[in-house]
Design a protein around this nucleic acid. Structure first.
Length: 561
RNA sequence: UGGGGGCUCGUCCAACGGCAGGACAGCAGACUCUGGAUCUGUUGAUAGGGGUUCGAAUCCUCUGCCCCCAGCCA
């Protein structure tokens, strides 16, 4: 209860601790093994954190190893992107960057070793036949007619596979295990297949490539990985992983599986994310609505927030769906402490202070971050004509509304207390297009010398000084908590939120933002956290909504309906 | 009807035979020049049955429900 150490523990750390105590291992080394066939997302961030932090907890190291055993799916473009994203998260693999393809020769030797032991054979069954012979979940399989070839014949055939004498699909190398095993992975799994395609690293040197099951564990062994942490999906593969270790007599890495991350209102399947991009439902892999690390980065999420979130989620073997609100909370928490505050009016309406001298400009002092005194202060210009948020004025204020309305007083943040005396509406549309106020010159800086209480404080910008901006206001990409489980006859695309992005132009922001550069993060007071988008040009600032502030008024208003 | 896993507040994670706790969400209040932040309080759970035990979320047993596996993908 009062013990803080439990917060940072989990079943993997306990297992590793036991392995060290029992002497099973005397050091800790993990690996993060992405296949370079796509971009990293928040789900990968969980794996990355677990891999790196587990090792760190015991003074160990983590290798980055690209699992590049299938040349037709992979590309160098992805290895660079993956490295960039891991670094952004703040993890360092030093010079321990490896590739499964570095070990192709070694892996080939391992295969020969198994052939010589009579534990592997070249099989000429077609893919369809292999499937038939494999049996089903409830019925045992049948042995391949090629299963009992001699070692010499297998050695010869395997060598010729390597030399490129056979077309793709004509034969494979299989492990000779047990066609009746209840675990289908043990029914003579394929170890090598023929692929006549150039590999992004080995070029045309190879035309046979190891399958995941014959590559992963062996690479772990070669690298001396003590703990190979992976997805629950590989639980069934562990007996095979261990079979290869035993038969080859190689370093006995221990595979431990944990549950992958799922998030409400979010899709994390690579295939579906790809579909979102290719069909144009989002603007790209780095669209701020995407759960990719590049998307979240562009959205304004910080690596610290993502790591904090992963820590809050914990590690277990239970398949779960984490509420995306937890992520948003972690993001707010971090940004609250570090993002400078700024005034920005997203839906502006003109406000004129009738008794303020025309042409006069004052510089008012504003605190940059109330959570961080070292952030200092800045000057914001004040004048007779301002913009305020359209929603901060009501002709007929509802109960509990304490912003501006006719006859009422409100404080302009860091400015003066003003009172609404009149407003004008557009004759055509009926929309309010000007609000007339008077100000109390005694209240400069927002303090009332008479001690009078003003309930509302609203943000504003000086009209002649304001900068134009575009705001991209994001909402959840999907309308239901679990788009992974569509109703009968529907797909996740049926739940796309049509309002997941609203592009709002004509926003007015304070002029201190003139210096803002892409990637800079701010809090727009009373609104939310925003991040400067790379689409920003010299003439137009573009901001992405990272996450809104908690909005209790919206909640009250909602309840009154 | 094979094999492998999993069931603790709404959600996620703890408690490892000894008072079921935390975070997020929710609710109520305090404070406030952001209806922000902060602080306080509060609602709320051991899938079910049987057993072992002084004592069970934890051990045993039966039942139920959920997930994964039949790629020459990873």
């Amino acid at each position: 209860m009062t013990d803080q150490s439990q917060e940072s523990s989990n079943f993997i750390l306990e297992a590793v601790r036991e392995d060290l105590e029992s002497g099973r291992f005397n050091y800790v080394r993990t690996r993060f093994p992405p296949e370079p066939n796509g971009y990293l997302h928040i789900g990968h961030a969980k794996a990355i954190c677990i891999d790196f932090e587990t090792a760190q907890a015991f003074g160990g190291t983590t290798n980055l190893r690209f699992d590049d055993t299938n040349p037709v799916k992979e590309d160098v473009e992805y290895v660079e992107a993956i490295k960039e994203d891991i670094r952004w998260l703040g993890f360092d693999w030093g010079n321990r960057e490896f590739y499964a393809s570095d070990y192709f020769e070694q892996l080939y030797d391992f295969a020969v070793q198994l052939i010589k032991k009579g534990k592997a054979y070249v099989c000429h069954l077609s893919p369809e036949e292999i499937r038939e012979y494999r049996g089903t979940l409830t019925e045992p399989g049948r042995e391949s007619p090629y299963r009992n070839r001699t070692v010499e014949e297998n050695l010869d055939l395997f060598e010729r596979m390597r030399k490129g004498e056979f077309p793709e699909g004509s034969c494979v190398l299989r492990a000779k295990i047990d066609m009746a095993s209840g675990n289908i992975n043990l029914r003579d799994p394929v170890m090598y297949r023929i692929i006549h395609a150039p590999h992004h690293r080995t070029g045309n040197k190879w035309c046979i490539y190891p399958m995941y099951d014959f590559a992963h564990g062996q690479c772990d062994a070669i690298e001396g990985i003590t703990h190979s942490l992976c997805d629950l999906a590989y639980e069934d593969h562990r007996p095979l992983y261990e079979w290869f270790i035993r038969e080859l007599g190689i370093f006995p890495s221990r595979q431990i599986e944990f549950a992958r991350l799922n998030l409400t209102y979010t899709i994390l399947s690579k295939r579906f994310l790809k579909q979102l991009v290719e069909e144009g439902h989002v603007r790209g892999w780095d669209d701020p609505r995407m759960p990719t690390l590049r998307g979240m980065r562009r959205r304004g999420y910080t690596p610290q927030a993502i790591r904090k979130f992963i820590g809050m989620v914990g590690v277990s073997k239970k398949e779960s769906v984490v509420d995306v609100a937890l992520l948003e909370s972690a993001v707010r928490d971090d940004l609250n402490l570090h993002a400078p505050r700024v005034m920005a009016v997203i839906d502006p309406v003109k406000l004129i202070i009738l008794n303020y001298p025309e042409g006069q400009v004052e510089e008012l002092e504003a605190i940059n971050n109330p959570e961080d005194a070292s952030a200092g202060t800045r000057k914001v210009p004040f004048s007779r004509e301002l913009y305020i948020e359209r929603d901060d004025f009501r002709e007929e204020p509802p109960p509990k509304y304490y912003r501006l309305s006719p006859g009422r007083e409100v404080r302009l943040r860091w400015g003066y207390i003003i009172k609404c005396v009149d407003y004008v509406k557009d004759a055509q549309t009926g929309r309010v297009n000007e609000i007339h106020c008077t100000y109390d010159p005694e209240t400069r800086g927002g303090y009332a010398p008479d001690g009078r209480k003003v309930q509302g404080t609203i943000h504003w910008v000086s009209a002649p000084h304001a900068l134009d901006a575009e705001v991209r206001w994001y909402d959840r990409l999907f309308t239901i908590p679990n788009p992974n489980q569509p109703e009968e006859g529907k797909t996740f695309l049926d739940y796309l939120n049509p309002d997941s992005m609203k592009i709002i132009s004509g926003c007015k922001v304070e002029n201190s933002l003139a210096q803002a550069k892409p990637g800079d993060r701010f809090q727009f007071e009373r609104k939310g956290f925003f991040c400067v988008d790379p689409d920003t040009t010299d003439s137009l600032l573009v901001f992405n909504l990272t996450v809104t502030l908690r909005d209790t008024w919206a909640k009250i208003e909602q309840k009154m309906k």
